[in-house]
Amino acid sequence: MTTVRQQNLLQRKEKILAMAETLLLDKHQDITLSELANELDIAKGTIYKHFKSKNQLYLELIILNEQRLFEISKKYNNDIKAYVSQYMLYNMLNSNRTILLHVIEERLTNNERKLNDLFKELYHIREQRILEIKDIFAAYLKESNSIMSIRDYLSYIWTVTYGASLLLNSTHYQKSIGSRERLIKLYVNQALMTPDNISSHHDQHTSG
C-alpha cells in the first residue's frame, strides 16, 4: 500500500518527465536540468532526488515511450492491419519525438554504462511488446506464404516508419510534401504490402 508521501513523489516524478518531454520536443534538441527546473519552478536539487543524471531522465523517457507502444500492441494484438497502422501513426504523427528518442537511445547505448538496470527494463518491455503481437504476425506471414521471419518483418516496418519520420520532420522536404495525410497513408500501405513470399522467391531463382 502506497503512502501519501510515496504518491506525491510519484506524481512529482511524472510531472518532471512530462515537462522534460515537452521541452525536448519544443527545442528539438538536448535540454539542461537547469532549464527543466526553471520551467517547473523547482530547485535543480529536487530533480536529482528522482534522477541521478540527465541520462537517467532521458532513459526513463524512452522507457515511458516504449510502454505506450506496448499498450498499442496489447490493444490491437488481434488485428495486424490495425496494429501496424496505429504503431506507425504513433511514430509518424510525432516524428520529432520518434527521431529524438531514437538518437538519444543510440547515444546512451554507446556511452552510458551506469544504467544497466534501466536498459534491462527497456529491453524487457520491448520484448513483451513483440511477444504480444507475435502470433498475429506469424499467422500473417504464413497466410502470405512468406519466407520472412517475424523479426525481419518487424525490422522492415520500423525502417519504413523511421524513414518516413525523418522525411516528415525535415524542414527541406516539408516544403515539397503535397499532402502529409496522403503520404502517411502511403507509408502504412507500403508496410502492409505482402512480404517476400515463397513463390516469387522461387521464381527469381528458377528464372536466374
Rank of each mutant, 00 (worst) to 15 (best):
A18Q: 14
K44G: 08
T22D: 12
R12Y: 01
A18M: 03
K13M: 04
D41V: 08
Q11V: 07
K44E: 13
K15V: 05
A20W: 02
D30V: 10
T22F: 06
N38R: 15
T32Y: 04
D26A: 15
K13D: 01
I16W: 00
D26L: 15
L9K: 12
M19S: 05
E39W: 03
T32C: 00
E39F: 05
I16M: 05
I42Y: 03
D30N: 14
T22I: 12
L33T: 10
L24I: 10
T32H: 06
D30H: 13
Q7I: 08
Q6M: 07
I16L: 07
E21N: 12
A18T: 11
R12K: 15
A43C: 05
N38E: 11
L23V: 15
H28Y: 14
K15F: 05
K15W: 02
L40R: 06
L10R: 13
L25Y: 01
K13S: 06
A43E: 12
L24D: 01
L24W: 01
K13Y: 00
I16V: 11
D30C: 05
I31Y: 00
R12A: 03
I31F: 06
I42M: 02
L10E: 11
S34I: 15
A43M: 08
E35G: 13
I31L: 10
A18C: 03
L36C: 03
L25A: 00
L33D: 01
M19N: 08
N38Q: 14
A43D: 09
A18S: 12
L23P: 09
Q7S: 04
L17S: 02
K13E: 10
Q6Y: 03
L9V: 07
A43K: 15
N38G: 04
M19T: 14
A37C: 10
Q6C: 02
S34V: 11
I42T: 04
L24S: 01
K27T: 15
H28Q: 14
S34A: 13
E39C: 07
L9F: 04
L10Q: 14
H28V: 10
L33I: 13
L9M: 09
S34M: 14
Q6F: 04
A18L: 09
Q6P: 00
Q11H: 09
Q11E: 08
E21C: 08
Q7L: 14
T32S: 15
E39M: 12
Q7R: 12
E21F: 08
K13C: 00
L36Y: 00
N8G: 12
R12F: 01
